[in-house]
Design a binder for these strands. Structure first.
Lengths: 194, 194
DNA sequence: ACTTTATATATCGAATTGATATTATACATC
DNA sequence: GATGTATAATATCAATTCGATATATAAAGT
């Protein structure tokens, strides 16, 4: 299930250009599968070479030609085979969590900033989920609805966990108060909310 | 926050070889940061070149020399700077969710298998979390404890979501019941548990 | 006797990321 | 009137990362 296969999957919903696919990756797929032009265009070229998609060039004045790709019967078969993988992976790559592992080497104020920024990022995702839900979710296949719900559930869990446990990170640690910061962790000591 | 920086962070806990680091990535870090030998060894070489780690070769009979790396004062400074990034990312790459997006192109039995395998994978993580918690968590810095708790919370949320919503995917869709599977989705219709 | 597991480093092709280049229209902002 | 940013559209490239494989030996299980 590489970028090629996912592109093929999106094309089952109708013909699209690389640009269109990118927008798809940025909206519906953004919370679980990122792909930039650097992956999409080579993927489409390769799919076209293998005969899994067809390509129609549409000339436009000024703008570059629009290349609209459509899945072929061979492509559908290829996709069906790819979807037969019984154990597709689910990987997380979190510089956020890696950073938090080393919180004891950071200034308390910096930890707070990182946590606040993560919460803001989660909020942005949640806003996007709500908008998708309001706009177009009704005409999606059940699979896409399941995936959106998954994103919502996981986001909510992350948000709640951070809100309820951030005190662990900023409560007086005694370590690495390197230079002269030892003031802003006064009030964070006494709420043991679980 | 690339592999290099994370290696540097792990080395703040004491000197270690590439092999040791790999084991670290496979246990504590496995749920949010994967790194194979193909990233770790080049990372260590590069860190040594930059003087951010020192390397002591320890000869062993039979086995290859053990190269034990230790963080240097320059390395500590480099790490502190890296940890100052206020918005470290948190990315998911899920072939599982991508697959589920196209559930309407799959046989119901195959969907069930994918869901069961994902649940099994989650269970494996949860078992690992419990073991880590029992064994060594007490002597970890708060950051590592926060991160482990994060993993547990997210895993639990994923597990619950899949258990409660899998019926969405296998409930009669009418689509692509390709050959002769149309029997095992009888009982999944009536529980609307939210 | 055979196979797997653990210790240990190293490399390589393939895939992916992230940034940048190009070209043009349109709409704001200064 | 000029500058900046957004949108539409494709393309490429270096750096990074992934996954698999090679090498070598000892211990431990079957």
């Amino acid at each position: 299930m590489d970028v090629k296969t996912v592109c093929l999957g999106i094309l089952t919903d109708g013909p699209a250009s690389g640009y269109d696919l990118k927008k798809h990756f940025e909206s519906t797929f953004s919370h679980f599968f990122a792909a930039g032009y650097g992956s999409i265009y080579p993927a489409l070229s390769s799919l076209a070479e293998q005969g899994l998609v067809s390509c129609e060039e549409i000339r436009q004045e000024g703008k570059p030609d629009r290349k609209v790709y459509a899945i072929t019967p061979d492509g559908r078969e290829f996709l069906r085979d790819a979807l037969r993988n019984p154990s597709p992976c689910h990987k997380v790559r979190s510089e956020f969590l890696a950073t938090m592992c080393f919180a004891h080497l950071m200034r308390p104020g910096d930890i707070e900033t990182v946590l606040d920024n993560r919460l803001a990022d989660i909020a942005r995702y949640q806003a996007m989920f709500q908008q998708l839900e309001a706009e177009c979710m009704c005409d999606w296949p059940q699979g896409a609805q399941f995936v959106l719900g998954f994103g919502k559930a996981v986001s909510a869990a992350m948000e709640a966990y951070i809100a309820e446990n951030r005190h662990m990170l900023t409560a007086s640690s005694g370590a690495s108060t390197t230079t002269s910061e030892r003031n802003e962790n006064h009030e964070a000591r006494h709420h043991h909310a679980s």
